[in-house]
């Protein structure tokens, strides 16, 4: 996330999208781990949350400054650091029902979470591609006339 010419091309929203891709990948790891251990005695399902932290980083409307703001006041409420890194939350999923062997994985819940994660990952990639496509178009066609 350097400054200069390349830094000016991407807005904060773009960096939020890139961060979201990383976070969704980590979430996929956690879900896969839960599913693989759906029958392991004593295994407790893990959850992975990053939405709140990423939303805190997304800034207000019309905010167009790049991710690494020199002013730390832009990132308050403890959700994000001044240089744009966020701390996701890995926690034991609360569950009402525990299996006979101490396993707390609900496979159907994990499947639903996985589907949502994958779809939003693809959607985010698509949006990044649109932005890159716009830039390519501007670079290719802006010099004519």
């Amino acid at each position: 996330m350097s400054g200069g010419l390349i830094g000016g091309l991407f807005t904060r929203g773009d960096y939020v999208k890139m961060g979201a891709l990383n976070q969704r990948l980590e979430r996929q790891h956690v879900i896969n781990s839960n599913v693989a251990n759906a029958e392991t005695p004593g295994y407790r399902a893990l959850g992975y949350d990053f939405e709140e932290q990423l939303q805190a980083l997304s800034g207000s409307e019309g905010d167009n400054i790049p991710m690494q703001a020199s002013d730390p006041r832009h990132y308050i409420n403890g959700m994000a650091d001044a240089d744009g890194t966020i701390t996701p939350e890995v926690y034991l999923r609360p569950t009402e029902s525990v299996g006979q062997d101490g396993n707390t994985v609900d496979v159907d819940q994990e499947m639903a979470a996985m589907a949502e994660n994958q779809i939003l990952y693809k959607a985010t990639v698509e949006l990044i591609n649109k932005k890159i496509g716009t830039l390519k178009y501007a670079i290719a066609n802006g010099g004519n006339g």
Partner: peptide, 29 residues
């Protein structure tokens, strides 16, 4: 704004976001 909201999970209305993004892209082109 819509795209950022989709990426950070605040508003996951995918078709609305994609339509708005396409509209903006076409308008720009």
């Amino acid at each position: 704004k819509k795209a950022t909201d989709l990426a950070n999970g605040k508003d996951t209305n995918i078709h609305e976001t994609m339509l708005a993004s396409s509209e903006a892209e076409l308008g720009f082109n």
